[in-house]
């Protein structure tokens, strides 16, 4: 992969900013959502909007760990852009009559647990962890879900909005993979020792316990919505393909861990799914009040174009 000039990328990001106010949310086409689609789409959009926030919180953590000012600023923008995507998705939900007043969509428990983990521990993780996991979530969940959405939904405004979101995401992925390769540089044994040190961190183990069922839960949701789970797997394979196309990328131990994990996820007959599916079921019994209060940054989410 050609190395990205991060300074130029930052300028490009700054020059590509858009706002909710740029979009005519009352444009015709909202009625193209069928009654049959409506409840599924509502659940789908709720998940999607919160997945944006997993990315957002991940980028916020990465901004704290960024080795250079430029990368820190890029991640600060990405954090904000993920929030913009969530806001725009809420505005679409509002357009389709899926939100009342200032009501926020409810995240599923696995998303809630992942966000809770990110809020508590992600700032303590070395850049390698969010730097390798976030691209997987972006490419797999975001990528697969967005494709599905555009195939299913006729509303032209939805297409207009996601064109903008996709353009942002393309820049995110460009930087994501560039950084993954960057993190694969250095002596292999040093990378290995550092990785082992992090893997043994109990905080990370808790993170795995949130992340693994999230993927399976999303797979279940996708299937319930009529998307073939292979679409998700195709997207996950893309992570391995792009992330592993250079020597440096492959040398990043976290890329290897996430890829191997991805292979288990896409293989439905792998024993991995027995405990993880059980975890999905188990987490389903956790009442949301146990997880604790929602973090205050959630209050910043809005479908309104102005504040």
């Amino acid at each position: 992969m050609a190395n990205i000039d991060l300074d130029k990328m930052l300028e490009k990001i700054k020059g590509s900013q858009w706002a909710l106010a740029d979009i005519d949310w009352d444009a015709p086409g909202a009625d193209r959502i069928s009654a049959e689609q409506w409840p599924k789409l509502k659940a789908f959009m709720s998940d999607l909007m919160w997945i944006e926030h997993v990315g957002a919180r991940g980028f916020a953590a990465m901004a704290k760990k960024a080795p250079t000012d430029t990368l820190r600023e890029i991640y600060t923008y990405f954090h904000a852009e993920e929030q913009r995507h969530a806001n725009a998705e809420m505005a679409l939900m509002r357009r389709w009559g899926m939100l009342d007043g200032d009501e926020l969509p409810e995240p599923n428990i696995n998303l809630r647990l992942t966000i809770e983990w990110l809020d508590r521990y992600s700032d303590d993780m070395p850049l390698e962890v969010p730097g390798s996991v976030i691209p997987m979530l972006e490419i797999a969940l975001d990528g697969a879900l967005l494709k599905f959405l555009l195939e299913e939904v006729d509303d032209p405004l939805c297409h207009e909005v996601f064109e903008k979101i996709n353009a942002d995401e393309a820049r995110h992925l460009g930087v994501d993979f560039h950084v993954m390769e960057m993190l694969g540089r250095g002596r292999l044994h040093q990378l290995a020792v550092k990785t082992i040190g992090t893997v043994a961190n109990p905080k990370l183990i808790l993170g795995v316990l949130a992340y693994a069922p999230l993927l399976n839960k999303m797979r279940d949701n996708i299937v319930a919505m009529g998307l073939k789970e292979e679409r998700l797997y195709e997207a996950m394979n893309k992570y391995e393909r792009i992330g592993g196309r250079t020597e440096e990328g492959r040398r990043n131990p976290w890329f290897q861990i996430i890829s191997q994990h991805g292979k288990m996820v896409v293989n439905r007959s792998h024993p991995y799914h027995v405990p993880v599916d059980a975890l999905v079921k188990l987490t389903g019994y956790i009442p949301s009040r146990v997880v604790g209060p929602v973090p205050t940054w959630v209050r910043g989410l809005t479908w309104r174009t102005t504040a």
């Binding site: 700054k14 900013q17 858009w18 706002a19 909710l20 106010a21 600023e73 600060t76 923008y77 904000a80 852009e81 929030q83 913009r84 806001n87 725009a88 910043g300 809005t302 309104r304 174009t305 102005t306 504040a307």
Partner: peptide, 21 residues
């Protein structure tokens, strides 16, 4: 704490897509 994207006629647009008036 969102980065400022631009200043508009009525306020400040930040990178999370909202115009603060």
């Amino acid at each position: 704490t969102w980065p400022i994207a631009k200043i508009s006629e009525n306020g400040i647009r930040t990178a999370e897509g909202i115009e603060h008036q």
